[in-house]
Design a protein around this nucleic acid. Structure first.
Lengths: 203, 203
DNA sequence: CAGTTTCGATACTTCTACGTATCGCTATCT
DNA sequence: AGATAGCGATACGTAGAAGTATCGAAACTG
């Protein structure tokens, strides 16, 4: 068997691309984004931070947006879904984790800027949604479905919609209700949950 | 009475600032933002569009962000609150108007970019929130309070929270659930409302 | 009318990032 | 060993916008 060159490893001649550089580029991109925001994302800045030549980046990507899409693509994060046996409590824990992480960081402005780029480059937002948001919503859905099975939650609810409503209410509050420098009230996620709960609980 | 120079009209000598230029600058800024997004907002671009010299802008503002804050400050928009006599129907109309306007325009990316600037300049987001978002939420609150008075809605609900939840659920869905190029399902605001309604209706 | 300030226009310097080219070196294939 | 392609580094030209300076004209005050 000699003819496996095209199927598995095309193996062009010459020095292979550095896997180390691959990783350094994506890592530097994410770090810069988290620390300094979207506007700090320049090819030159990424190259410097990654300890990599600009050429090395241009050989792989042709724009910052392409790098971001690739970085998000490797991020499929795993959310550990709480399972206390109590559906309400599971949702509360998830909501609080969500709010806590969000309140801390540069996360929200960055999310805003990602949404902002959708005007010229939808791919970035699409990748963000697919790899960063979907897993979070999937964990909410998992809890909701479990609640339905247990009989805690009515079977006729729209799981997808509830999974929008919980994080949506929390995020919207932070973005467009609270002053920029304010934190969440500690019990806010719980209050959101309380209101929604009345609309979805069984009986 | 001779000494009113400081209280009313300081009236410096020389040619007065052109009110026409004032308006043209703010108008051009808002139009550029709506048509081309935040990144198109440059002093030079605004000056050209407003038919005004750069000097004229720098005499009034020292950054694009300052112009934006001023522009938002003049925008206190009046939302006409529907009053059909039916609380649920009032909310549905408002939600649909909201979603309709949002689906059309550059509105969301722009909102995203405004949120994004909060990282370096909270004043812009604060002005946006104060003058653009608050009036919308005020109209939701007005409907909710009327509903409570009518006895359609339970008296112990958290009006502020519900006023976050309705637009929050709708916006979040558009931003982080739908693919970039997708429109709202026509009945989405209504479905959001249905779910929340179960948690707030009287009896 | 004299004095003052703003007007729009234009020119100018500075800065930042882009994208390309070139360097000597290195890693891998045949 | 020789060919090939990637490596980091550096230098370069280009482009867009920032911010400043200067101009003659215009709009007010006293």
């Amino acid at each position: 068997m000699t003819g496996n060159r095209e199927t598995q490893a095309p193996r062009r001649p010459g020095r292979p691309r550095s896997v180390r550089a691959d990783k350094a580029i994506l890592k530097a991109t994410v770090e810069l984004l988290a620390e300094a925001g979207y506007q700090a994302l320049t090819i030159e800045g990424i190259a410097e931070r990654a300890g990599v030549g600009k050429t090395t980046i241009y050989r792989r990507f042709s724009s910052v947006e392409e790098i971001l899409v690739a970085a998000f693509g490797e991020m499929d994060l795993v959310i550990d879904v709480p399972d206390t046996g109590n559906t309400w409590e599971d949702l509360r824990l998830l909501g609080q984790a969500f709010a806590g992480r969000a309140a801390t960081a540069v996360m929200f402005p960055v999310m805003g800027q990602i949404v902002g780029t959708a005007l010229t480059n939808p791919a970035v937002l699409d990748a963000f949604r697919e790899h960063l948001m979907k897993p979070r919503q999937a964990s909410i859905k998992a809890i909701l479905r479990r609640g339905v099975e247990r009989g805690d939650i009515r079977a006729d609810i729209d799981v997808d919609l509830i999974a929008d409503l919980i994080p949506g209410g929390i995020i919207f509050h932070k973005l467009f209700q609270l002053p920029s420098d304010a934190m969440f009230a500690e019990d806010y996620p719980e209050r959101v949950l309380d209101t929604i709960w009345k609309g979805i609980k069984a009986e």
